[in-house]
Design a protein around this nucleic acid. Structure first.
Lengths: 192, 192
DNA sequence: TATATATAACTAACCGGTTAGTTATAATAT
DNA sequence: ATATTATAACTAACCGGTTAGTTATATATA
């Protein structure tokens, strides 16, 4: 049982669980070590500090999310549904993202920023071409779509915790997400 | 300078600052005491524990929010704008709410739950009367409105941190919030 | 009004347990 | 042999909560 790569992975998995549950300040390195079945110092050999371990876990999981969810400005309801499914299936990643946003003062990784910028650019293009409504500015529209799509993850204080009943019917929620986004972009008036 | 009520208030103010910045696990009772200009033990005399102090601060601030923001199912865009203004002006309260949702496992206070229920009921009524569109189920609609309205507070990982430029123009955002909500409820097709 | 008494408001110092991070040492593979 | 992988043992600082005691203020009494 001497395998650096495997140990590293076990630590990352354990850290994911710990950080998503307790956040950075609340996480305990001892607990991560125990849960990963390794010595605490091994964690400090592979990852310099608790904070760096957190950032590593977050980055890895966000990358996966970006790869999994394709984007097209002409299929925004579909995109929203994909985000919705990801958020509902990976509530731990959503929690990680929230912790990072609350506890860390660091900027977003440049790749995430530029991916966001690119989406905004494409939305603007689709608006100019009249394929979707131009009423809402692209940055606002994208933010609205992301927040609506993730609003039924447990991280949202206005989501499932306030609506335990509605939160059960995932298919209905998925349809509503698509419907809401469709409403935000429809061009029923030629002037839109 | 011996005034129980004033001391209590100073502690609550200091705690608000500390908890909204660091969360429950990250908050330091010593720091709260120092910032409130009192002895740490005084905090434990007035509030039993760190956790109870947090809950007290949260409750107090949420109550204020409920009082300040009136609700009418026939003025949903206006309601959303009021929520938006509150969220932008009181980002510390928003952070408190996020920390509570992430760190605490306790249910929402019953008054908050019932206030939410009542809003949903009124929305359903307005839908049945045909005053707003019936496409989206009331619980989904209310959650969508709340999340859109608060999506430009710093607590949203898809909000200002990804759109620093757009976040500056508060008036434009306010108008977009109203516009988005209007789109979610408009009845342009008689079948809606 | 001056003095004794009771109580409310507050504090300094401490404690047991915890926590992130280190050091020294052992085992394994090549 | 020697570099890599791993662990046990350790430490300094921290932290929530407590204890034992002091100071201010109100009330009662003579």
């Amino acid at each position: 049982m001497r395998n650096a790569e495997a140990s590293r992975e076990r630590i990352l998995d354990a850290a994911m669980e710990e950080f998503s549950t307790y956040g950075i300040a609340g996480a305990r390195v001892d607990r991560i070590a125990k849960s990963a079945g390794c010595n605490k110092n091994l964690i400090y050999i592979y990852f310099e500090s608790k904070e760096i371990l957190f950032t590593t876990v977050l980055q890895k999981n966000l990358e996966r999310a970006f790869e999994e969810i394709p984007f097209s400005p002409d299929r925004l309801p579909e995109f929203a549904v994909n985000v919705f499914d990801f958020a509902m299936t990976h509530s731990d990643v959503m929690r990680l993202l929230m912790w990072a946003n609350l506890e860390q003062k660091t900027d977003n990784p440049p790749q995430r920023e530029s991916a966001h910028e690119e989406k905004i650019r494409q939305i603007g293009e689709a608006q100019s071409a009249g394929r979707i409504a131009s009423t809402l500015p692209p940055p606002f529209l994208l933010t609205a779509i992301m927040t609506i799509a993730t609003s039924w993850a447990s991280t949202n204080p206005f989501g499932p915790s306030l609506n335990p009943e509605a939160a059960k019917d995932r298919d209905a929620l998925r349809a509503s997400v698509a419907g809401a986004v469709e409403r935000l972009i429809r061009t029923d008036h030629p002037t839109d």
